[in-house]
Design a protein around this nucleic acid. Structure first.
Lengths: 138, 138
DNA sequence: TTTAATTCCTAGTAAAATGATAGGATAAAT
DNA sequence: ATTTATCCTATCATTTTACTAGGAATTAAA
């Protein structure tokens, strides 16, 4: 039940972009240096974030990435789901694309998986990148 | 962020034991058949459950496993933590045995990891095996 | 117009985790 | 004795993870 580095690095990188929101495009080089993350690996993470529309990119010198929306309009949930997929603890209760096993109807344990999914969704969807930064500053 | 089969199979097996709580020792053979899980694999799962003191065993013919406590006294959290370890989404906020990275003090994202951990703990610790069964029957 | 900085794209890859299976030793009831 | 079990350790194929490598395409600036 652990997040992968995709989710962990990705959220840190998005917070980094949020902190530099008014500075135009930020290169992966700078993010990688500040966050101590492999630049090559970050490329792959950002490919996913871009595919989900959470960041925009500019190629060439002075290029880089920036948030597609304001930090207060991007939730942790949007970021984590882009990088980790659904936060459902098992596939059968994946809200979007459930893959149900043959025992689904009679399954007793799905009740708890649904509760875990719902509480995680509640937490990650209620906090934006801006919230994270503000709470940290306090 | 998915549970492994250890957690999924294990919880199902524990619910199975709870359903047969007053029938003495239940063999893995019966559980494996009812739950359609490999018996050999279940052995390894039950070794972990036993190590955590959640089940007792009896060897030999007519032997098997039974719950160490009443179904209402065993929470989903006790079972999942025995099989999956801490439910913290990252190691640095593991309540029992945290392994903190060098950036821990300045980390903005740990705020969300703590919230995710707390809400998961809240959910799994508030529901017992008996609760699961009763809710299912309704 | 060259150069440097950058994203973009695909492939490869070592290490770890996962989800088992295999084979026997030990114990107890019948 | 025989059968039914747990117990214990080793092995193994597959998948996932967390990268690295190498270059193509694009753009700003010197």
């Amino acid at each position: 039940m652990k997040l992968s580095t995709k989710g962990r690095y990705g959220l840190r990188a998005m917070v980094d972009l949020a902190l530099h929101y008014d500075e135009g495009y930020i290169s992966l080089r700078h993010i990688a240096e500040r966050q101590e993350i492999s630049e090559g690996y970050l490329e792959q993470v950002f490919a996913m974030l871009k595919k989900e529309g959470l960041v925009r990119s500019a190629r060439g010198a002075q290029g880089g990435y920036k948030l597609s929306y304001r930090p207060e309009d991007i939730t942790v949930g949007m970021v984590l789901r882009a990088l980790e997929g659904s936060l459902a603890p098992v596939d059968c209760v994946d809200g979007v694309n459930p893959s149900r096993c043959s025992r689904y109807d009679e399954c007793v344990t799905k009740l708890i998986w649904e509760k875990m999914r719902d509480c995680l969704d509640e937490v990650v969807d209620s906090i934006s990148l801006k919230d994270l930064i503000l709470k940290y500053e306090k």
